[in-house]
Write a protein that binds this DNA or RNA. Structure first.
Lengths: 345, 345
DNA sequence: CTGATAAGCCGAACCGGTTAAGTAACGAAG
DNA sequence: CTTCGTTACTTAACCGGTTCGGCTTATCAG
């Protein structure tokens, strides 16, 4: 139980408490000699700043907040989040910041959490994920004056600092890939339409479908494995030769559905996943996917939040464009299919 | 920016700051009338306690800590963690406690984090996962006097409060299941041997194998999908008719390996997974698994930590025994196999 | 009517830092 | 030699709560 305070350090060094504070915080106002002495004594006594005291006077909590408005169920299903959190952490650790993580039921509860954190001064800034179209969190964060970095397209961020990946380009890459393989009938299993990124993909999908002269159908889901499986079963009735998924969890679930119907991947159906987690590499066949460095993404986002706190201008920052990684699940459609479109289900 | 303090409330109520504090904290020392008035005014002004100030004077941080000594990669692969964290959160939210989450590289860094948290008084208690055999964290936590609840078997907890699930019983259930189906040659793809729970399963596996007169082989891995796939490939050389996995991620990876070798599940090989996440239900065939309410587990652990802070005796608490859920991946061995043990690979 | 007891409240110290304002010493410029 | 500006500190207020000793006042037994 080390109860070492700066008062103790001051006593031992024969200087005032204030001087010790200046020395420890690397601020001007003390001579190099004194600073060195203070640092040495602090190290000897294994002094650690009391975060509460520092937070109280300096109005800094050295904590970032992250609220996830998802069910624990979804969170454990989706490999995405833990990787993202891990990336965030890696940067926080460098600054010895902590992450306050809160899992809530819905957007309302998320807003309440922001209000509470702002009032309590529990966090210095927040990372906002799952951006919506016309997101209600943006005006609230503005009003609270809570520093934030949004994870999503600048078109959704309404001027707040954001980090994004180019979903439009990725969608184009996916459709050009399947089109170049000779596919004409495409199905898309999408996430919830209220999610901004899904909305952007919706636009990109429609435009690319027209440009490439494809026929297409889109089914929106809640991103869960069960919904992905159900949607796959539905769209298969339309005999698409390729299915593009908005996440990899649904793609894996879809693969099982296809196999259970005795269809072959990729001979009968080509599958393309989004968010290239390990899942895509442990199935048989392995899944072609739009690959995404989720860990790096999280790291970049927290770096940006530090920048914002340091007073940087809120410019949108493109982190990357998901890269298409072709694997076993995509190939030319089987030649038998185009001539005789026999019902399979 | 609400800057409402108890001083303001005191002014408006015409009482002293101290009285307000007593009233708000539901402590004796104020009359019912005054208390009611204070509470009303506090509600009107939307007063929220400043956590830093409270922490500084009351030496409580209203935060629990959780350190995960895993790579971001593993964390995003393993569905387990996010579900566990979600469960922890659900209980913390009820007490308006926060969770400080830290992802570190190894046990050494984890110990450093505990020391730092203890010195800074950043957390009121910690939840310790991935218990080891002779875990070095236990003496450190004892010395630091940091309240903790360990997630793991009492045999590993050395007297500290713990919450556990009965892995021995679960392992028995798994082996009795495959034995009753008529399997004789079993392989086990286990986690890292230094993990306490893996060690316990090792013991249970060996004993059950002898009791049921099975032949068996065990391969330890790092719990990753890649290692699970590699180990599966290896053990298949010994022609087991059933494989039992220590987590579901490796089981899914193993399934793909089996399928890639043109073996059928369950006809040629029966598979049993541990930790029944969604993964087990989205494969084809679906996986028989030892099912585990990970979310509830997390919730129970944090409830115990609250109990410990309230002064409860550190009794081990059995949360549950994983239940075997038979699905498509387990069945009687194909009759052709026992008579003519033809090499398959 | 007196003295003891307790409830209700006040004032102030305290937690452990940060930081604005003030001061003493010193060197350079006028 | 005075004046001004730095540098290197000290002092003390402050952040927003909690908590403890002590002061009033009401209650009640004797």
């Amino acid at each position: 139980m080390s109860r070492v305070t700066i008062k103790e350090i001051a006593r031992r060094c024969g200087v005032s408490q204030g001087a010790v504070s200046y020395a420890l915080n690397n601020r001007p106002g003390v001579s190099a000699a004194t600073r060195a002495r203070v640092l040495r004594v602090a190290a000897e006594l294994e002094w650690v700043p009391n975060t509460a005291a520092r937070q109280l006077s300096a109005a800094r909590s050295e904590t970032f907040g992250l609220v996830l408005a998802r069910t624990p169920q979804t969170l454990s299903e989706e490999p995405y989040f833990m990787g993202f959190v891990g990336g965030v952490e890696s940067v926080l650790a460098e600054h010895s910041y902590a992450l306050a993580l809160q899992v809530v039921a819905d957007l309302g509860a998320e807003l309440a959490t922001y209000r509470k954190w702002a009032a309590e001064r529990r966090v210095d800034g927040v990372i906002v994920v799952d951006l919506r179209v016309g997101d209600p969190r943006i005006p609230v964060l503005r009003k609270l004056g809570l520093p934030a970095v949004l994870v999503g397209d600048p078109a959704l961020a309404e001027g707040l600092p954001c980090v994004w990946t180019d979903s439009t380009a990725a969608m184009n890459a996916a459709l050009e890939h399947v089109a170049s393989l000779g596919h004409k009938a495409i199905a898309r299993i999408a996430g919830p339409p209220e999610f901004g990124d899904v909305w952007i993909r919706d636009q990109a999908f429609d435009i690319a479908v027209r440009r490439l002269a494809l026929t297409a159908v889109t089914r929106h889901t809640d991103y869960s494995a069960a919904a992905g499986a159900a949607a796959t079963r539905e769209v298969l009735a339309g005999h698409p030769t390729a299915i593009v998924y908005d996440n990899d969890l649904m793609a894996v679930a879809g693969l099982a559905v296809v196999q259970a119907l005795d269809l072959r991947v990729p001979d009968d159906v080509t599958l393309v996943a989004w968010d290239d987690s390990t899942l895509c590499r442990i199935t048989h066949p392995t899944l072609t996917a739009l690959s995404h460095n989720v860990v790096g993404y999280g790291a970049e986002v927290s770096r940006r939040l530090f920048d914002v706190l340091a007073g940087a201008q809120p410019q949108p920052h493109l982190y990357s464009t998901p890269q298409l990684i072709p694997r076993e699940s995509s190939a030319r459609p089987a030649p038998s299919v185009p001539p005789s479109p026999t019902p399979v289900v």
